[in-house]
């Protein structure tokens, strides 16, 4: 086989056309997929941004209406709102115009790589921007609840509150570990693969 024969064989291919494809049904499928994806993303955004808002509202209510012992809860409102603000800013960033599938391959590769590196930064620093503010809010609430108890009950409740704190810490450690694992097993290998491909495309 030589190049000419190879090119001839390649060009003699007769691909199936759109004649057998129900284009309307296909488009309906794509649109249904798009609507489902949009709904899922909206629900995720509301959930993520809403968690901080609900937390801040609960802390605000406790701080303002449950007596001086609960005032410490007010301190944790700002970090809670900070989490919400972070999610909103992140969503705005994500929705900004990015190269689509119609971009030149190298441009798309570099954009995908930048996005993956951003994901790695977010997942690696989840303790700072997510767990720490939420943890501060939960700790403030538990501390306020504990110190609002009458003396004799407070002594008996110490183990209970310590247990709550420990369970929260364990849960947060689990979230942190899952994020670290996602970086190690998913994001890092994807970045290495994309960097290798990008280097191939960038070679002079």
């Amino acid at each position: 086989m030589n190049w000419n024969e190879m090119e001839s064989a390649w060009n003699r291919q007769v691909p199936p056309g759109a004649a057998g494809t129900d284009v309307k049904a296909l488009i309906e499928t794509f649109e249904a997929r798009r609507r489902k994806l949009a709904a899922n993303l909206l629900w995720r955004d509301l959930r993520e941004a809403g968690a901080g808002l609900v937390g801040a509202a609960v802390l605000g209510y406790l701080g303002l209406h449950r007596g001086p012992g609960f005032r410490t809860c007010l301190l944790a409102i700002a970090p809670m709102l900070g989490v919400t603000a972070f999610f909103i800013l992140e969503r705005i960033r994500a929705h900004r115009e990015r190269p689509g599938f119609d971009a030149p391959l190298l441009t798309k590769l570099e954009a995908d790589l930048a996005e993956l590196r951003h994901q790695r930064r977010l997942l690696s620093s989840v303790g700072t921007w997510y767990l720490a503010p939420l943890g501060a809010g939960i700790a403030a609430m538990l501390a306020a609840l504990y110190f609002s108890l009458p003396g004799p009950v407070r002594e008996r409740g110490l183990v209970y509150f310590a247990g709550c704190l420990a369970a929260t810490a364990l849960l947060f450690w689990g979230v942190w570990a899952l994020n670290r694992r996602a970086v190690r097993k998913g994001v890092e290998p994807a970045i290495i693969e994309l960097e290798r491909l990008r280097d191939q495309f960038s070679q002079r």
């Binding site: 291919q13 691909p15 056309g17 759109a18 004649a19 488009i27």
Partner: peptide, 17 residues
């Protein structure tokens, strides 16, 4: 929709290969 259908017909070779 018309453009999509036209692409599927005119450029089926690109998609297939």
């Amino acid at each position: 929709e018309a453009l999509f259908k036209q692409w599927l017909d005119s450029h089926k070779g690109i998609i297939f290969k």
